[in-house]
């Protein structure tokens, strides 16, 4: 003959079990959001994905006291000045809608 166990007694058994094994008692199975705290942080490993690049212009910009000259950059700026002199520079940015309409080609 099987002994009859009331639901309340089963619940109290579960509660006791939780207190012994140090797990949280959650009879309604509510979402506690604990998984967001338990999960490992992903940021630190994300940051190291790209290897460090050796960027000479950036080093020059950061250490102005070195007084180094970026020759490629100087040459580029010189070329722009030359092109402007010959009237081949980039056009000015349109300030108003009319100007931009005038500059676009019509088909």
């Amino acid at each position: 003959m099987a002994a009859f166990i009331t639901p309340s007694r089963l619940a109290s058994l579960k509660q006791l079990r939780c207190s012994i094994f140090q797990t949280s008692y959650n009879p309604q199975s509510l979402r506690t959001g604990a998984k967001y705290l338990r999960r490992r942080l992903r940021g630190p490993s994300m940051v190291g994905y790209y290897p460090e690049s050796f960027d000479i212009p950036q080093i020059m910009r950061q250490n102005k006291w070195l007084e180094m000259v970026d020759e490629d950059e100087e040459e580029r700026l010189m070329d722009i000045v030359d092109r402007k002199k010959r009237g081949k520079g980039t056009p000015k940015k349109a300030k108003t809608p009319e100007e931009s309409r005038r500059l676009t080609k019509r088909r």
């Binding site: 967001y36 705290l37 999960r39 992903r42 940021g43 994300m46 940051v47």
Partner: peptide, 16 residues
Amino acid sequence: RHGVRASEIARRAYLF
């Protein structure tokens, strides 16, 4: 990637 690292803990707290 840097933004994620900087705000990850705060985001997790709000998510929780």
